[in-house]
C-alpha cells in the first residue's frame, strides 16, 4: 500500500475533497477496528464519526516521521474506541465477550465490499492457528504493546514479534497467492 503523500498534504490544508477521499479510503478500516473493540454497530458508527472529525481537526499533527498514515489513523480509531468502552453509554450495552472477536466477525460475514479479497480472507481465517488469532487480536486490533501481549498470552516477550510475523506472513501469502 502506497503512502498517499499528496492526499495527506491536501488534507493538512483543510481540503474537504481530500478529506472525503481519506474517508473513502479508510472508513471501513476505522469502522472494523472500532467494531472489534466496541461490538455494537450504532455506537461504533458514532465513534467513527468522532474519529474522522479528529482526523480532520488534527491532520497537521501527522508527520511521516512518526509512522505510516494508515497507522496514525488506526491509532486514533483504537484510542477513541477504547475511550468509548470506558463511557457510561457503553457500560449500559451488553457485549459479546469473545476474546478474538475479529475471527467471529469474519467467520459469519458474507457481504464484503469490493476492495476486499473476501475469498482470501475467509480462507486465511479458516486456517489460522488459535495463538495467531490471539496475537493479532491483541497487537493489531486492541493495540497492546509486546509486553502487555506477552503477559496476557503468557509467552516470552522475545517471541511475540516473530510469532506475530509468522501469523501475518500467512495472511500475506493467502492474499498474494
Amino acid at each position: 500500500m502506497m503512502q498517499p503523500t499528496e492526499l495527506i498534504a491536501a488534507l493538512q490544508n483543510q481540503n474537504q475533497d481530500a478529506f472525503k477521499r481519506v474517508y473513502d479510503m479508510y472508513a471501513d478500516n476505522v469502522y472494523g477496528i472500532i467494531y472489534t473493540i466496541i461490538k455494537d454497530k450504532s455506537l461504533s458508527e458514532e465513534v467513527l464519526q468522532d474519529v474522522f472529525l479528529k482526523i480532520w481537526k488534527n491532520a497537521n499533527s501527522y508527520s511521516e516521521k512518526k509512522g505510516r498514515f494508515f497507522t496514525w489513523i488506526l491509532n486514533i480509531a483504537r484510542n477513541a474506541a477504547i475511550d468509548k468502552t470506558r463511557s457510561k453509554s457503553f457500560k449500559n450495552t451488553s457485549q459479546n465477550q469473545s476474546a478474538d472477536y475479529f475471527v467471529d466477525i469474519l467467520e459469519h460475514k458474507d457481504n464484503f465490499s469490493s476492495k476486499i479479497d473476501a475469498i482470501g480472507i475467509k480462507k486465511y481465517i479458516a486456517s489460522l492457528e488459535p495463538l495467531c488469532k490471539k496475537v493479532i487480536d491483541l497487537l493489531f486490533f486492541k493495540g497492546f504493546t509486546q509486553k502487555e501481549a506477552s503477559e496476557e498470552l503468557n509467552i516470552p516477550l522475545g517471541t511475540i514479534k516473530t510469532r506475530n510475523r509468522i501469523c501475518i506472513d500467512k495472511l500475506r501469502k493467502t492474499l498474494e497467492a
Binding site: 471501513d28 477496528i33 476486499i116 500475506r172
Partner: peptide, 24 residues
C-alpha cells in the same frame, strides 16, 4: 512495509460489520 500494510488494510476493512451509508 507496504505489503504488510496492504494485508492489514484488507484484514481491518474486512471486519467492518456492514457498509456505512450515511456516516459521511
Amino acid at each position: 512495509v507496504k505489503r504488510i500494510e496492504h494485508a492489514l488494510d484488507q484484514l481491518s476493512a474486512a471486519v467492518a460489520p456492514n457498509t456505512l451509508s450515511s456516516s459521511y
